[in-house]
């Protein structure tokens, strides 16, 4: 079972690697930011799988914090005063 959990986590990690293309290519600032947001969700899933594999509940606390704070960077992004979110950066 442990192998299965780690393998699933590995697949999720690879999706992050693929998602990085969106951060690198953009074209708009919003594209980049939303890709990073999606990484946050994926990281929560990876942490839950790793916690299940290792039997360490402290890892779930890390996932909990990521889930709680995922919104903070995005809210900062939309509430900033002076960055145009639609044009290409």
């Amino acid at each position: 079972m442990i192998e299965l959990y780690i393998s699933l986590a590995l697949i999720l990690l690879l999706t992050i690697a693929i998602g990085l293309v969106r951060v690198l290519r953009g074209p708009t600032a919003t594209d980049r930011m939303l890709a990073a947001q999606l990484f946050g969700t994926t990281a929560v899933a990876i942490l839950l799988l790793l916690g299940q594999a290792g039997g360490n509940t402290a890892i779930w606390d890390v996932a909990l914090i990521f889930a709680l704070l995922a919104a903070v960077a995005a809210v900062t992004f939309v509430r900033r005063k002076d960055i145009d979110t639609t044009t290409e950066t």
Partner: peptide
């Protein structure tokens, strides 16, 4: 944005 992603993976 890359730094935010870096922080996530560093926690992993």
């Amino acid at each position: 944005v890359l730094f935010i992603a870096f922080g996530l993976l560093l926690a992993l």
